[in-house]
Design a protein around this nucleic acid. Structure first.
Lengths: 111, 111
DNA sequence: TATATAATTCAATTGTCATTGAATTATATT
DNA sequence: AATATAATTCAATGACAATTGAATTATATA
């Protein structure tokens, strides 16, 4: 029940094309904001916004560069990703799909 | 590239809580509009709307009842579902996540 | 034909959210 | 201290989409 609501909010986060493109980059490894900006041609402030949304959803993590703390590095959170992956596996499992005789609640009135 | 856009539109379709609840019911087997309405307490015209969106996305199919064609039965499309399931598996595959030295495109300017 | 049921379509409203441009913060270098 | 860079925050705008209520369509029965 509630898990479905969780899923819907994850779907919502990944539903935006720009945000999904960013997340996809981060699935491929660590990136800073401006490298993302160069790759997908989107202004940095907008990327910042999407990174925040992804962070709040727990899909990505961030840390500042050791040498030079002006850079902030982002990457997908492996633990969260694999948990989400399993959730989706279960949600779309064929074994959930039963042969079922549909029952219309108002059907009794007829016949 | 384009596959990601496809994914984002599927996410969009499943991002709405009401719609996801409907889809979840249909994953469990065939339902008519009014049985859905009874189970999730949502007006039928709204359910109709969401069913249409799910249909256009190819996630569900529909057919009229044999005996009484006033009823329209809906269910999740097994082929599409398993294909989507595989797509998500690949998208969230841990093996995609590389150890990677981030390269800031403007980093050359410094040092 | 007239009535009832299941479902859809239509028009209007409302709220959410991506996007934009400007300003601000944090860190580093000279 | 002054300047430059990376990134974020803020305020405003615009567009899309969920929801609602009323009207309409499709099918069945008497």
């Amino acid at each position: 029940m509630n898990e479905i609501m969780d899923l819907s909010s994850v779907f919502k986060v990944l539903a935006d094309p720009t945000r999904l493109a960013i997340f996809n980059l981060l699935m491929g490894g660590v990136h800073c904001n401006c490298e993302i900006a160069e790759k997908i041609n989107v202004p940095m402030n907008l990327i910042s916004h999407h990174l925040k949304v992804l962070s709040k959803a727990g899909l990505i993590t961030s840390f500042r560069k050791e040498n030079d703390a002006r850079w902030i590095y982002y990457c997908a959170d492996p633990i969260r990703i694999s948990s989400l992956r399993q959730q989706l596996q279960d949600f779309l499992d064929k074994n959930r799909m039963f042969e079922r005789e549909p029952i219309c609640p108002n059907g009794k009135k007829l016949k």
